[in-house]
Amino acid sequence: MKYVVIVAFVAILGSLAAALVYMMRGGVQDEGEAPRQRRMARALAFRVGFSVLLFLVVLVAYFMGWIQPTGLPLQR
């Protein structure tokens, strides 16, 4: 499960980096190429979707008993 979370975070950060590259890239665009804004929006939509998917996977794993909470004990 740990490796799934690590791969998901790498994919999320990679998508965010791709959106940054599309946003910062300047110059004249080719006619056959998709506009920068569309590519950037697609990369950001992938990041949001993958983040939601990761949250749902962690939630399902918790309910199935595959992962256990190990938080700090409360001090009173």
Score class of each variant (00 low, 15 high):
residue 49 G to I: 09
residue 40 M to E: 06
residue 51 S to P: 01
residue 9 F to A: 11
residue 23 M to S: 15
residue 12 I to T: 01
residue 47 R to K: 08
residue 45 A to M: 09
residue 53 L to H: 01
residue 26 G to L: 08
residue 29 Q to P: 05
residue 7 V to S: 14
residue 22 Y to A: 14
residue 42 R to M: 15
residue 9 F to T: 02
residue 11 A to Y: 04
residue 7 V to I: 08
residue 36 R to V: 02
residue 41 A to P: 00
residue 27 G to K: 12
residue 11 A to M: 08
residue 34 A to M: 12
residue 30 D to H: 11
residue 3 Y to E: 10
residue 12 I to P: 07
residue 39 R to Y: 03
residue 45 A to R: 11
residue 27 G to F: 10
residue 23 M to I: 05
residue 31 E to Q: 02
residue 15 S to P: 00
residue 14 G to H: 00
residue 29 Q to H: 09
residue 45 A to C: 02
residue 37 Q to R: 10
residue 43 A to Y: 01
residue 17 A to K: 01
residue 44 L to Q: 08
residue 2 K to D: 01
residue 43 A to E: 05
residue 29 Q to K: 15
residue 36 R to T: 03
residue 31 E to N: 02
residue 38 R to L: 15
residue 54 L to Y: 00
residue 46 F to K: 09
residue 51 S to D: 08
residue 52 V to F: 04
residue 54 L to P: 01
residue 35 P to F: 12
residue 42 R to E: 13
residue 49 G to T: 06
residue 45 A to K: 03
residue 48 V to G: 14
residue 49 G to K: 09
residue 52 V to L: 10
residue 2 K to T: 05
residue 8 A to K: 06
residue 31 E to G: 03
residue 19 A to R: 00
residue 5 V to F: 10
residue 21 V to F: 09
residue 39 R to G: 12
residue 1 M to K: 05
residue 43 A to T: 01
residue 16 L to E: 06
residue 20 L to I: 14
residue 50 F to T: 04
residue 22 Y to H: 11
residue 42 R to A: 11
residue 50 F to A: 09
residue 23 M to R: 15
residue 39 R to N: 12
residue 32 G to D: 01
residue 22 Y to R: 07
residue 11 A to T: 00
residue 44 L to I: 05
residue 48 V to H: 12
residue 40 M to G: 02
residue 37 Q to P: 00
residue 19 A to M: 01
residue 17 A to F: 07
residue 27 G to D: 12
residue 8 A to Q: 12
residue 27 G to S: 12
residue 52 V to K: 02
residue 28 V to D: 11
residue 1 M to D: 00
residue 49 G to Y: 11
residue 8 A to P: 05
residue 51 S to C: 11
residue 7 V to W: 08
residue 26 G to F: 05
residue 4 V to C: 07
residue 40 M to S: 10
residue 50 F to C: 08
residue 24 M to R: 13
residue 30 D to M: 15
residue 1 M to I: 04
residue 17 A to C: 05
residue 16 L to M: 08
